[in-house]
Amino acid sequence: MKPAAFTYARPADWNAALALLGEGARPVAGGQSLGPMLNLRLALPEAVADLRHLPGYAGVELAGEVVRIGAGTTHAAIEDGAVPGRLGEILASVARRIAYRPVRNRGTIGGSFAHADPAADWVAVLPAFPGHAVLLGPQGERRVPLAGFVLGVFETALRADELLRAIELPVLPQATRWGHWKFCRKPGEFSKATACLLAVPGAAPRAVLAALDAAPLVLADAAALRAAPAAEAARLVATLGLEDPWRASLARVALRHAAEAAA
């Protein structure tokens, strides 16, 4: 299980990274998703551009009411409290349950989000937040709402010549309620159903249902779910037309648990 041959480049700045992208290089951050695909020869890039050493790629900045998380920030850093406040608590609780610590030490929030595996944790969680993905292309930066970033299975709003640079999230009041539930038979297993619900005081609660082999389902107003978790979960899942009764049951349970935990 050795990769096919590829060339490796480590761009020193963002322009160099974009130039490599233009030449067809495959961007890689922590490599915890791409690595297995390379070894299994499921991914056959001719060139790889390692983003890890780009300036500002990793790290968390607070600018007014916005927390900017560099795309190259590792899951482990978030688990260990790199993000301040109530938002940080919530993200840390999610990060801790991603894969295993040695994977979290390398894997990054941006790499995982951009990879857009439907079972991935950030794919299932970030769309619940009223924030933005910061994309950088030859024409400069643009911002895409987090709820609209992941478009399908391994499919995102990123254009072929763009990189994910950062995730911008709002500072959350301490009274923010949060519920998150995912189904894994063992820690680190790919989730078979993930749901979360974010209730920021004064705003409509938002919820996400994910890990269903499709783009995440985002509920911009989850008030009904929050009010009647079991009934609303059943109603929502019934609309999805899931073929596998087990996965449908897991989806209902996930939504309900997430809503109840955020009550």
Partner: peptide, 24 residues
Amino acid sequence: HGVCGACTVEVDGAPARSCLLHAG
């Protein structure tokens, strides 16, 4: 493929899967 952990080593002070870190 990063699941079994047998190849875990310390990289820059933290455990990492050595099978998922390619040379570059």
